[in-house]
Every structure is written in structure tokens, then in C-alpha cells.
């Protein structure tokens, strides 16, 4: 136990002697961890955004103006029979006309063309909500039966599918960019740690040779560098988590206006804090210990 305390003490001495280099090492590790947190946050926000958009997506089924009420009911029951369908709401002909006028309220030429018509050209509309956007295509196929052919004038979903796909692509690109940045910072952090240990060993060559002369074991010589690597990891994770939590306090109010379902990044972080800290600590420890180990292997003949 006293040996471990001595090794920790030597590690702290080494860190103090190379304070500038140690600070730079921690700085790079924090940058790396921040980029990791950004990637992770973007991922979470992307997931929430897509879920939110998915909830807003609806399949519109446009019915013929002359469809009988009995046929409308039959069609509605048919749609409700599918387990993928969450809800089916109905707009009658007048409501369909009003909805059209509201959508094109600013388009005078469209509304004046509509006014030329003597009667309401719109039939009833079904607004179908499914569990997943992928289900809509199945529903559209299910509606393409010969007996419903003359009742259904058209369906509208393709625009939403396109929007979802574009959103998915944008999020994927942003995530890929974040991962590249993360990889870059990881590489820089690895090289800086490698150099820090190399410089420490180089400046302590005399001390190391004396340690070997008086019978210090391999652990006594290597230990301080490994302990320093662990300390760098712990400090950088602590700093990063603190910075992230502070930043989220300012970011969350802006997000509340977008995510009306009450999603909060701060609450999400807090509820997963052990996983977040543990995962990041593990990642940084692997990086720092590997880098230190490689530097020692090249510089120390112990």
C-alpha cells in the first residue's frame, strides 16, 4: 500500500514538473470528450426529432365526392382493422374544402380558380395515423383493391416520406462529421499523451537510471507514468461532464420550444449519468494507458 502511495506521489511530482504539458494533455482530452458528447447529443436530438416528425406524419386518403356514407363507414372499418393503424379521423366534404382554402389562403390564383367551380369538388378525406412511417406504404397497397378502386381518388404520403428521408440524411451527415472530428481529436490526444510521457521519460533519464541502479522494479519505474495517465483521464472526464451540464442548462430552454413533448437533454443526461461517465472514462482510460504504454515501451528499457 505504501508502495502505491509512493508511486502516486511520484506521478503527482512528474505532473507538477511538466505542468504546461500536463495541462495541454488534459485540454486535448477534454476537446476529444466534448466532441464525443456533441456526437452523442446530436444523436439523441436526431432521434427525438425523427420521432416527433413521425408522429406528425399522416396518410391522407382522398375519397370520391359521390361516395355513399355506407361505403365510407365500410372503408373506415377496413382501415381500423389493421394493427399498424393508431387512429383514423374523417373530414367531411365541407371540412375538406375549408382545409384546402386554409392551406392556400395566400394563393389568390388558386382560390379564384376554386371559386369558378359551382360546387365543392372535394370528397371526404381520411387522415390515418400509423405506428411507423414504413407502415403507410403497406396501407396504401392494402387500399389498392378493385372493390375500393372507384371510391378512392388518391393518397398523399410521398411528400412526408421524402422529408423524413432528407432529415435522416442530414442527421447522418452531421453525425458522420462529428465522428470524423472525434477521430481527429482522439488521434491528437493520443499523440500528445505519447509525447508527454516521452518528454517526461527523457527529462528523467538520470532519475530512471538511478532507480534501476538501486533495484527499483519495473512497476516502480513505469507506475508513475501509468498513474499520471489515469489522473489525466479522471480530471478530463470530470471537467467535461461539468462543462456539458453547465452548457445544457443554457441550451435546454431553447430546445423546449422545439420539442413540445417535454424532452430535456439535462434530464436525459442526469438519468444516464453513470453510463455517460463510465463510458467516457473507459474510452479515455484506454486511450491514455495505451498511449503511455507505447511511449514507455519505446523509451524505457525496463
Amino acid at each position: 500500500m505504501s508502495g502505491l502511495i509512493r508511486i502516486i506521489s511520484y506521478a503527482l511530482q512528474d505532473i507538477g514538473r511538466n505542468a504546461g504539458l500536463s495541462a495541454m494533455t488534459v485540454f486535448m482530452l477534454v476537446l476529444m470528450l466534448l466532441s464525443l458528447n456533441v456526437v452523442w447529443t446530436v444523436n439523441q436530438l436526431a432521434g427525438e426529432s425523427i420521432a416527433l416528425v413521425k408522429k406528425e406524419v399522416r396518410l391522407s386518403v382522398f375519397l370520391a365526392p359521390d361516395i355513399a356514407d355506407r361505403s365510407i363507414d365500410e372503408l373506415e372499418n377496413y382501415l381500423r382493422s389493421f394493427p399498424e393503424v393508431i387512429s383514423v379521423s374523417r373530414l367531411n366534404r365541407d371540412q375538406a374544402l375549408a382545409e384546402f382554402k386554409a392551406r392556400y389562403a395566400g394563393r389568390g390564383e388558386v382560390l379564384s380558380a376554386l371559386n369558378e367551380l359551382t360546387e365543392n369538388p372535394f370528397g371526404p378525406i381520411f387522415m390515418v395515423a400509423a405506428r411507423d412511417p414504413a407502415d403507410y406504404q403497406r396501407l396504401i397497397s392494402a387500399l389498392a383493391l378493385p372493390e375500393y378502386d372507384r371510391f378512392i381518388e388518391g393518397t398523399s404520403f410521398e411528400a412526408h416520406a421524402g422529408a423524413l428521408e432528407r432529415l435522416g440524411v442530414i442527421i447522418r451527415r452531421v453525425t458522420e462529421g462529428g465522428i470524423i472530428l472525434l477521430g481527429l481529436f482522439s488521434l491528437i490526444a493520443f499523440l500528445i499523451i505519447f509525447n508527454t510521457v516521452r518528454v517526461a521519460i527523457s527529462t528523467q533519464r538520470a532519475e530512471i537510471s538511478i532507480k534501476r541502479l538501486v533495484g527499483a522494479g519495473s512497476w516502480f519505474i513505469r507506475g508513475p507514468y501509468l498513474v499520471a495517465a489515469v489522473l489525466f483521464a479522471v480530471v478530463s472526464v470530470a471537467l467535461t461532464i461539468t462543462l456539458v451540464l453547465i452548457t445544457l442548462r443554457y441550451v435546454d430552454p431553447y430546445l423546449r420550444g422545439v420539442f413540445t413533448n417535454g424532452f430535456s437533454l439535462t434530464n436525459y443526461y442526469r438519468s444516464h449519468i453513470l453510463v455517460i461517465i463510465g463510458g467516457q472514462l473507459l474510452a479515455v482510460l484506454v486511450l491514455t494507458v495505451l498511449s503511455s504504454g507505447l511511449a514507455m515501451r519505446r523509451q524505457l528499457r525496463v
Binding site: 538520470a206 532519475e207 537510471s209 538511478i210 534501476r212 541502479l213 538501486v214 533495484g215 527499483a216 522494479g217 519495473s218 525496463v302
Partner: peptide, 22 residues
């Protein structure tokens, strides 16, 4: 073996010309 060298060094006192003090 490299792992045994420290134990040998603890049983032999070694003194060099260039002192080797911290």
C-alpha cells in the same frame, strides 16, 4: 531474467565515478 535484476541490484551496492545523486 529482467524481473530478477532489481533483486540482484538490492544485494549489490554499486558506486560509480559520476555520483548519480538526485
Amino acid at each position: 531474467a529482467p524481473s530478477e535484476v532489481p533483486y540482484l541490484r538490492r544485494q549489490i551496492g554499486v558506486i560509480f565515478q559520476d555520483f548519480k545523486l538526485l
